[in-house]
């Protein structure tokens, strides 16, 4: 299986083969509907994004709270991909800003597919609903932005060997 470490280069993204598994390590940034709305508002207002976008990975995900005071306590609660299609209205705006990959589940719109090709991005899918398993790939969690959004806040997850499928868009 091909291994990837974020931040990714244009060449690494271009070499991804549709329909194959990849194993991703490094930092991924979570962002769902509410965070996307704010990220795009920031860009439209001439502001800076709260994380470095170029070569990064945006994970469409909102984790469960982290269980505390447990023996061998995990660093995060279950976490997995949400439906990517809901971010389709926002994704091209971010792709235009800087190339990166997005991680979610389900199909993308034609507009997103066109933006992915135009800006040298890629779309990867995690296994929907396998959140207890996926959480085992997370080694570290750090808040990044919009903490008031609860599970929809942007957090930086340091992942190791997150299995993903390169999607055909």
């Amino acid at each position: 299986m091909k291994t990837l470490l974020t931040p990714l280069t244009r060449g690494e993204i271009a070499s991804l083969q549709e329909g194959t598994w990849v194993s991703l390590s490094g930092v991924v940034y979570t962002a769902r509907d509410a965070a996307h709305k704010r990220l795009c508002e920031l860009l439209d207002g001439g502001g800076l994004l709260p994380f470095p976008l170029e070569g990064s990975a945006i994970f469409y995900a909102g984790p469960c709270p982290t269980p505390s005071a447990k023996q061998g306590s995990p660093v995060i609660g279950p976490v997995g991909p949400t439906t990517s299609g809901r971010m389709d209205g926002y994704a091209p705006r971010l792709m235009r800003e800087a190339f990166h990959v997005t991680i979610g589940k389900g199909p993308r719109s034609q507009e997103v597919a066109a933006a992915i090709r135009r800006y040298g991005c890629a779309y990867l899918s995690a296994i929907g609903g396998a959140a207890a398993l996926t959480a085992r790939c997370v080694e570290k969690v750090e808040p990044v932005a919009f903490e008031d959004l609860g599970t929809e806040a942007v957090v930086a997850l340091t992942v190791r060997d997150l299995p993903l499928i390169v999607m055909n868009v």
Partner: peptide, 24 residues
């Protein structure tokens, strides 16, 4: 591979008493 992951996921959730899916 996906089905095996889903079964493994359900097993982990039950054993560790954590949610099967983040969307509870």
């Amino acid at each position: 591979r996906v089905l095996e992951a889903l079964l493994e996921n359900a097993k982990i959730a039950k054993e560790e008493h954590i949610p099967i899916c983040q969307d509870t």
